[in-house]
Nucleic acid binder design. Sequence first.
DNA 1: TTCGTCATGTAATGGGTTACATGATTAC
DNA 2: GTAATCATGTAACCCATTACATGACGAA
Lengths: 189, 189
Amino acid sequence: MLELAVLGLLHEAPLHGYELRQRLKATLGAFRAFSYGSLYPTLRRMKDAGWIAEDEGDATVVAGAPALTGRRGKVVYKLTAEGKERFTELLAEAGPSSWEDETFGVHFAFFSKTDPDVRVRILEGRRSRLEERREGARSRLARTRGRLDSYTLQLQEHGLDSVDREVRWLTELIETERKKRPDAHTEPR
Amino acid sequence: MLELAVLGLLHEAPLHGYELRQRLKATLGAFRAFSYGSLYPTLRRMKDAGWIAEDEGDATVVAGAPALTGRRGKVVYKLTAEGKERFTELLAEAGPSSWEDETFGVHFAFFSKTDPDVRVRILEGRRSRLEERREGARSRLARTRGRLDSYTLQLQEHGLDSVDREVRWLTELIETERKKRPDAHTEPR
DNA sequence: TTCGTCATGTAATGGGTTACATGATTAC
DNA sequence: GTAATCATGTAACCCATTACATGACGAA
């Protein structure tokens, strides 16, 4: 998840860890944040895996005392060819994991780089996942309504409302996607 | 988190693991679920800690072949005195952890058992947490708006909308709480 | 007798967090 | 020269998940 986000951001421009985190916030908005404690180890793993590499191309700033103190300055990373491949691969994934709460937003954030077909499949997957959850909650609520105290009830209702809103949002998005390309499968089955 | 939820449910009636999970879904609604893989180990830990105990009071069903196969039947748990204490303790917590996304809902679900003062403090904490997040996202958005593609933008806006809605919901709830008890601190400082 | 669902559990793993430690750079 | 913030990193832990294994029990 973090991995996908990092690949996506570095796809646009080389960045160092600290700035990567700011961009992460800017891209994902109010709905997700990552700590440095997970970012830096991830960067290390991705470097070891060969998906990203240190970018020396920009000159390590001052030439005053470069490698004396055992490196202490920005470490700028850029995507490698393998990294780009990996990114494309992850972007093409439209399976259940891509419509999970936490993952969906990250996939969505890189939709402009995602194949239109995959976009629609992710949006539809997310929507039916939410619809399932909503129906489950609705019928359970209908069954237990009488026995619930007002707080529990309000919690349920606020939850259902939120899900409803997201479903409507998704429906709009799906329609917009369909209009953009009137070809392709209209409602697969 | 799971711990609090389990204590809260067992506070109402003794239950076995399987049913506990159904109740968890019914209580928490659309916004959270737990797997058995986390529930059963938690039950074990809580038993070892002395907060819950096996409830034999209900007769272990059939007396046909009771302890022969090394127990294979429902294990009903009930709250111990220490468990009740622990529950009260957790319920009184109104600190930052209680207004986190995942935790807030669980606290809220047991509001009818929570002290009115604590209720208001949790609601207010949650609200200002969301407001902070929203302002951060808003100003970042204002700064970067031009550079964002339409998907990223829509994601941000949908996120802001959701936060806005929850803030409004919380504000209503806080007012309702205040009306219920016109005494107490009106806007602490 | 076999299928579904109730029921309990474990092992391996995942994907993050907090707290801490350290140092460089910039603004006052 | 000192405080803020930029910048990198590690260690310990947390809280859950998935996949798997097992078995009882009722209904068709």
